[in-house]
């Protein structure tokens, strides 16, 4: 065949491209599994901590408009883990993992890297707050942490992004955890008798305002999201119950965070309770609700109930 003819050139190029294509396909088939495995290896130990013994796969295709989610892993048959990079106080941001069990409960929350301040933003990665996160389910938003607003907002936004993906994967609704009954409002987990709850972080202090022998009115102060939540709690000494609960300074209301806790319905729950009653927290207003419960607890304690 004439070297200069066009058909020769086309054939030569065609054969060349064909050989190269096959060669590349071969090398790709050999190297691709190794590459996938090593990219997951870095995360492996963390993933194992959440779901020991599970087999993991990395999900590359996910639609996260916020850009906060940097990695999605699936623990086969057990749950999903999301790697999130969010911004807090430090301009470098921080990276953490949030894992959901398939039933919607939180399987784990671990920080991988952060540069937040000790005693402030860093508290978002310490036990108290971590315990809070572990308690929420896929149908709830992460609580904010007072005194660590920027960082916890970053955590909140990151978890929101992960939660959105998790719910989307679940077909658009958050899975209802097995132990909980079907309800419109998600219930707060782990209720304890008011007197047994550890609400010391709210630092509630009650001062006797009026005492006529049968009922005492206490002026209480506690720290919710902001330090100066105040309420007047009236305790019936003979029945050992709270007969009135009036919020005199809704300190968290101005930030638009504690609103739900201050709602009339939620306040009404304090009427008629004793220190043995279980009072649920209000989702989305954890800190404020804690403050209110702390004041009720302190008032009942002061009254000797």
């Amino acid at each position: 065949m004439n070297k200069e003819s066009s058909s020769y050139k086309m054939i030569l190029l065609g054969v060349l491209c064909g050989i190269c294509g096959l060669l590349l396909a071969f090398v790709n088939s050999v190297t691709a599994p190794i590459i996938e495995k090593s990219s997951m290896a870095a995360e492996y130990s963390n993933l194992e901590a959440f779901f020991p013994g599970a087999s993991f796969s990395e999900i590359k295709d996910y639609d996260d408009p916020t850009g906060l989610v940097t990695g999605v892993y699936e623990a086969e048959g057990q749950g999903m883990i999301y790697k999130v990079h969010s911004m807090g106080y430090d301009s470098e941001g921080f990276t953490f993992l949030i894992a959901y069990n398939n039933d919607g409960t939180v399987a784990g929350y671990t920080v991988l890297e952060h540069h937040e301040t000790d005693g402030l933003g860093k508290r978002c990665f310490e036990e108290d707050y971590t315990a809070e996160i572990m308690k929420i389910s896929a149908s709830e938003e992460a609580p904010l942490l007072s005194g660590a607003t920027l960082t916890s907002t970053g955590v909140h936004d990151g978890i929101e992004a992960a939660r959105t993906l998790f719910i989307a994967k679940n077909g658009g609704t958050a899975p209802a955890p097995a132990e909980k009954t079907e309800e419109e409002q998600p219930e707060e987990p782990v209720s304890k008798a008011l007197k047994d709850e550890d609400l010391s972080s709210a630092g509630a202090v009650c001062e006797e305002k009026e005492n006529d022998g049968t009922t005492v009115i206490y002026a209480c102060k506690a720290k919710g999201f902001n330090p100066d939540n105040e309420a007047e709690v009236t305790v019936d000494l003979s029945a050992g119950t709270i007969t009135a609960f009036e919020v005199t300074n809704a300190a968290d209301d101005k930030d638009g965070v504690g609103d739900d806790a201050y709602e009339a319905d939620n306040i009404a729950r304090y009427i008629g309770i004793t220190s043995d009653s279980e009072v649920d927290a209000v989702s989305g207003a954890t800190e404020t609700s804690k403050a209110l419960r702390a004041m009720a607890q302190a008032a009942l304690a002061e009254a000797g109930e």
Binding site: L16, C17, V27, V30, I35, S38
Partner: peptide
């Protein structure tokens, strides 16, 4: 084009090998 295809194939192979064995 012939040289380019040859070189590009070699580079792609090297790239994939490096990604797998020397990440």
């Amino acid at each position: 084009p012939v040289y380019i295809v040859i070189i590009a194939t070699l580079v792609t192979i090297v790239e994939m090998t490096m990604q797998a064995f020397t990440p």
